[in-house]
Amino acid sequence: MMIPILNISTQALFGQLLLGLINGAFYALLSLGLAVIFGMLNIVNFAHGALYMVGAFCAYFLLNLFGLGYWWALLIAPIVVGALGVVIERTMLQRLAGLDHLYGLLLTFGLALIIQGVFQNYFGSSGLPYAIPPELQGGSNLGFMYLPNYRGWVVVFSLVVCLATWFMIERTKLGAYLRAATENPSLVRAFGINVPLMITLTYGFGVGLAALAGVLAAPINQVRPLMGADFIIVVFAVVVIGGMGSIMGSVVTGFMLGVVEGMTKVFWPEASNTVVFVIMAVVLLIKPAGLFGRTA
């Protein structure tokens, strides 16, 4: 096995490592949103992939209909999708309170079908181009590798967003409300806090994170109606591996699996599609609650 490793140029190795980090950034942002939503609503949001796609389309529409570029999209798309999430929560998810959690999964699966189906009708299955913003075009030579600026930006910005989310939840008053309401919503409500409103806003925030990931992905992966459909399944596997109990856990697991997947592309390309699922199987055998999960 020594020779094939030596045959791979450091350029290719670091290139794949970077791609892995970028995928990891998306895994982290999406699984973070899923974990935040799951904590408050006890719902696995199957529509997460579809709303990630809607985020990317928001960026596309903002540019092509209103002439608003990438930076505006980064701000507006999460707000628009977050507002859509608020409507979904208030009109539908709220009615599932007290029912088996599986109904939330089924309902959001149905929503994903609707959203993806509508976009496929109007835009087919092919990708729409979305240009890298001028400020982030080009790249930098780091000596051992060439770093496209936009990709570097995606990794750094996602990390910042993840850490900010972690800080907000673990270190602020609002976060204390969230954590407390995750444990015992009725008591938190009896302290005078409007927990139903918090739940609604949490869902909006979680899907807003998905939309943000969608905007970040638009210049890399093109904008496609099905860009989130298969992706969300891998994110589910990431969530099973990390366990949904911990915010930092989802972030670390997301980045880690992205890198592992990237490395697999270098050494055993055929397995790169399935490596995350294989890791999931192994984790289930060794630590069923997930790497950072509390035993359910």
């Binding site: 599986l102 596997a237 399935t274 289930l284 055998l285």
Partner: peptide, 28 residues
């Protein structure tokens, strides 16, 4: 044997992920 190690929504996600793995197997 893998999936029954978790319940509820995790069971659903695990079976989904495993079937995606089989999908890629059938593709290749």
């Amino acid at each position: 044997a893998l999936a029954i190690r978790r319940q509820g929504i995790y069971f659903a996600m695990i079976t989904l992920a495993l079937s995606q793995m089989i999908y890629f197997f059938c593709l290749q």
